[in-house]
Simulated assay, not measured.
Amino acid sequence: MGILESFKTIEVESPVDKIIRQIRDLIIAGYLKAGDKLPSERKLSDKFGIGRTHIRNAIKKLEFYGILTTNPQSGVIVNGTDMVAMAGLITNVMKIESPDFFSLVETRCFMEVFSVQQAASRRTKEDILKLQEALANYEAKVESDLPAEHEDFIFHIKIAEASHNSVIKTLMLIVLPDILEIYRNEKLCPKEEARKSLIEHRNILNAIIEQDSSLATNYMNEHLKDVLEFSKKKLNL
């Protein structure tokens, strides 16, 4: 091996990663506890010496993972999840590299199909209730023409939970937020897409309730077809 191969690539943290790292360190050290409120965007922006956009992006990413919650009246609050698990999730947020969008989507498709197959086979009555609640929350946002990315995320995570495979759920928590964020930012007709997704979500849930793994798989593949084609176009395949 030559000298050049001995050198390691220098990894430069983005401003968002740095914000997430500091929040993680404060949680681990016990300075941030469940129920604590973060300072305002303006104060954080002044403290970090960066624009508010970076602050919002960091908060949004941590909201996807359930680590933070934004309440219009109370501000940004630390959730009451187990702090050790929370710290591990934050580490995953920062460690994941930035693979091309197609690779993320392709990986998601494999996991989603397995997830829905197992959910249709293993779901319990409690799982069905959680899925119905997640679908109702998504439908409420779509029918009100409000952004529903978070509710979309939760519905798919509830399917992963219904599969009763903790590894699949963990992997979904890692790849889904970035996919939804990129897809949301670049799609031209989000309202039309959301209404189409609502119908597809209903079909998937009905197949899970009926414990029809084959039908659930078909509906999931149909649901993922658009985002897969979109990712291929981005890769110029």
Rank of each mutant, 00 (worst) to 15 (best):
S163T: 08
I179R: 00
I179N: 03
E161K: 14
E181C: 05
A140I: 02
E151Y: 03
A162Q: 06
L180Q: 02
E151M: 10
H150F: 09
L146T: 04
H156L: 12
K141R: 06
A162H: 11
K169W: 08
M172G: 14
F155R: 11
F155N: 09
K141N: 02
K141E: 00
L146N: 09
A148P: 04
K141V: 00
E151V: 03
H150M: 06
E161H: 15
H164E: 11
L176G: 10
M172F: 11
I154F: 11
V167I: 12
E161N: 10
I168R: 05
L171D: 08
V167N: 11
E149H: 11
D145S: 13
I154D: 12
A162N: 03
H156F: 14
S166D: 15
A140V: 00
H164P: 05
T170L: 11
A160V: 02
K158G: 13
K158E: 15
K141H: 01
L171F: 10
I154A: 13
L173R: 15
S166M: 15
L173A: 07
L180M: 07
F153T: 01
A148E: 08
I182E: 01
T170E: 15
L173K: 11
I174Q: 03
K141F: 01
L176P: 03
P177Y: 02
E149I: 13
V167A: 13
E151F: 07
V175R: 00
S166K: 15
H164V: 07
L146R: 03
I174D: 10
K169F: 15
I168S: 04
H164M: 06
I159K: 08
P177T: 08
P177Q: 06
A162V: 06
I168D: 08
L171E: 14
P177R: 00
P177F: 00
H164G: 05
S144D: 04
I174P: 01
F155W: 15
L180V: 04
E181A: 11
I179Q: 05
I182V: 05
K141L: 02
P177C: 03
V175F: 11
E161L: 13
A140K: 07
D145F: 14
D145P: 06
F153Q: 05
T170A: 14
N165G: 11
A140W: 03
M172P: 10
N165R: 07
L171P: 04
E151L: 05
E143L: 12
A148D: 09
E181K: 09
E149W: 07
E143S: 10
E151G: 04
S163H: 03
I159Q: 04
I157F: 05
D178K: 13
I157G: 14
I182A: 06
V175Y: 01
H164Y: 10
V142I: 13
D178A: 14
K169H: 13
I174M: 10
L180F: 02
E151I: 10
I159V: 12
D178E: 15
D145L: 13
I157W: 09
A160F: 00
N165F: 09
S163M: 13
I154Q: 07
D145N: 11
D178T: 10
V142D: 05
V142K: 05
F155T: 12
P177A: 03
E151H: 08
H156N: 12
A140D: 00
M172A: 06
